[in-house]
């Protein structure tokens, strides 16, 4: 059974309709699996995740999550989303922000749920501190907390490990693996390939809006040194086919 089904989705913006940021992509992601969407900066990862969570709409094609449209409020109750470098209301405390989010989800046992979520992301000690005083790692964890406060069935994470030190990354990875063990379907955008191998069941490599390949990390790495080598080689080959200028040394 598939949780997420993307069929022939393309995206271009009205200001520049000629340029397609996402080009005719199709994906089916199984329920309870962890999917990694990997690609260089500007590949179309964030544009795709934005369409998946209803922040933007496809120009062509369709997206179904649990057979519903991404902006269906019934579906949104079951979704979690952590954007890249999440931005918060700086004047609120971590607790107040989660209280705000909890009320949007109509969560009944607010206090209990907030405490539990803060504990899960190891932010309980900072719950009464203003968000403006949080470090980058704490902000990422708060971003994750607001995404999992509703115990989502499907979780979208946009570069959750970006800009974190090794310790911070290990903490976030631990949380993701914990959610995976609970059966949450997870969609991760990332370009940190070492973590992808560890966390994901399936990955797709995207470059310039096109999906180049989809498969399990181990299958994709076959014939290459590792996933990173596979990633770089595949992207270079595709760019060569397209006649793009290649990066020196690769």
């Amino acid at each position: 059974m598939y949780s997420i089904e993307i069929k022939n989705v393309s995206k271009s913006y009205p200001k520049d309709p000629e340029i397609q940021i996402v080009k005719n992509i199709s994906l089916s992601i199984k329920h309870g699996s962890v999917f990694g969407f990997i690609g260089p900066n500007g590949a179309g990862k964030t544009s795709t995740i934005k369409m998946l969570v209803g922040l933007s709409h496809p120009t062509e094609g369709s997206i179904k999550i649990d057979n519903k449209s991404p902006d269906d409020p019934v579906l949104q109750k079951k979704l979690g989303f952590m954007p890249e470098s999440p931005a918060f209301y700086q004047y609120l405390t971590g607790y107040e922000f989660l209280e705000f989010v909890a009320s949007l989800f109509d969560i009944k046992d607010t206090d209990e749920r907030i405490e539990k979520t803060l504990k899960e992301v190891d932010l309980l000690h900072a719950k009464d501190k203003r968000i403006r005083t949080y470090s980058k790692g704490m902000l990422q964890r708060l971003g994750l907390a607001q995404a999992i406060i509703n115990n989502p069935d499907i979780l979208f994470l946009d570069e959750p490990l970006d800009g974190l030190d090794p310790l911070g990354r290990a903490e976030i990875k631990k949380i993701i693996l914990n959610l995976k063990s609970k059966g949450t379907t997870i969609f991760i955008n990332t370009h940190i390939l070492g973590d992808v191998e560890e966390i994901c069941d399936t990955v797709s490599i995207i470059d310039k809006g096109e999906i180049l390949v989809t498969g399990s990390p181990s299958v994709l790495s076959q014939g290459y040194k590792d996933l990173e080598d596979a990633f770089v080689t595949m992207i270079q080959n595709r760019r060569k086919e397209r006649g793009d200028i290649l990066i020196e040394g690769h």
């Binding site: 969570v53 931005a87 989010v101 949007l104």
Partner: peptide, 14 residues
């Protein structure tokens, strides 16, 4: 601009 909407719009709110 601050992208605070990214945390609100995907929630179950019209």
């Amino acid at each position: 601009e601050r992208k605070t909407f990214y945390l609100i719009l995907p929630k179950p709110i019209h």
